[in-house]
């Protein structure tokens, strides 16, 4: 094969390069820039090395927020993934039920984040909210404003309500791609319902589950709007996640240096964890 080399071809990628530069690389580099400099105002900056990074990493505030993030992601993943699979398994495979179920499932996904937050903020209010008042009249002392457990419960239920659909839809897509012959063969082979799930449905859903898992992990780890709207990070700091803390630091306190350092650390954590999950979950494929 004779390949012709023509360096003019590089011009073809120039528009994309520029686009990516302005939308991603340059903003990211400004953050990097802030993270290694300090200022006392007047737009005068001086070099601070890894000072902000060590400040962030040594602060309890950061580790506590990170802990809350991990706990939150862990809880919602362990609810949404099994629940999503369960719902997908029970969805109809044909007939009128299919479009009805799909639309019902897609509805929560179409609602903007802050609207979801507002819905639940109002829903859970003790004075006027349907949920809050109902629970109160049943004699349950529920108040997400001053009770840590209630605040967490509200956020978790809200996230489950908002995002389980995504897992359901992805799993459903995986399920309907299984040819009928597999189920017939399983019947012939005398497989139990569990065996059908374990050896046919689960392996076929594996890829979409990986995607669902990664999407839900990244999204929940970056959660901001909903807790900001519902609890504002409270009561106390009990629902202050990294993102909320970051915004407080950057915009509330205008500590650009530490905020920049923190966002880089935050970004690297997400990248690292996603990479680990991806590697672990796909490694079994390569052994085959």
């Amino acid at each position: 094969m004779n390949k012709t080399w023509n360096n003019k071809a590089w011009f073809m990628v120039l528009p994309v390069l520029l686009l990516v530069a302005f939308s991603a690389v340059i903003p990211l580099m400004t953050v990097v820039n802030y993270s290694v400099q300090d200022t006392f105002g007047n737009n005068q900056f001086f070099w601070n090395g890894v000072g902000w990074f060590s400040d962030v990493l040594e602060s309890d505030r950061f580790w506590q927020a990170l802990g809350r993030n991990l706990l939150f992601s862990g809880i919602i993943l362990s609810i949404e993934i099994p629940l999503g699979i369960l719902i997908a398994l029970n969805m109809p495979k044909k007939g009128l039920g299919v479009p009805v179920c799909l639309v019902l499932m897609a509805l929560p996904l179409l609602i903007p984040w802050n609207v979801v937050g507002t819905i639940w903020q109002v829903f859970g209010r003790v004075d006027i909210g349907l949920l809050g008042r109902t629970l109160h009249s049943l004699g349950i002392n529920y108040n997400y404003v001053n009770n840590v457990f209630d605040a967490w419960m509200t956020l978790i239920i809200m996230d489950v309500w908002h995002w389980t659909s995504l897992v359901v839809l992805l799993c459903y897509a995986g399920l309907v791609s299984i040819p009928e012959a597999y189920y017939q063969a399983a019947k012939i082979d005398g497989a139990s319902r569990w065996a059908v799930f374990r050896y046919i449905q689960l392996p076929k859903m594996k890829r979409v589950l990986l995607i669902a898992f990664l999407l839900r992990f990244m999204d929940s780890f970056m959660i901001y709007t909903e807790p900001f709207v519902v609890t504002g990070g409270g009561p106390g700091n009990s629902t202050t996640f990294l993102s909320i803390d970051l915004v407080k630091m950057a915009i509330g306190q205008f500590d650009l240096g530490p905020a920049a350092a923190m966002s880089i650390i935050y970004f690297l954590i997400i990248l690292l964890l996603s990479w680990i999950f991806y590697t672990v979950m796909t490694s079994s494929d390569e052994q085959a």
Binding site: Y182, I188, G190, S192, A195, Y199, I200, P203
Partner: peptide, 27 residues
């Protein structure tokens, strides 16, 4: 009854041996 289909149906997370043993073990 045993039935063999037009297109291969295998349980691809199992070994060849386990695939063949599956109908027996289920019973």
């Amino acid at each position: 009854i045993a039935q063999v289909f037009q297109f291969p149906v295998i349980y691809d997370t199992m070994t060849v041996y386990d695939n063949l043993a599956f109908p027996l073990r289920n019973r």
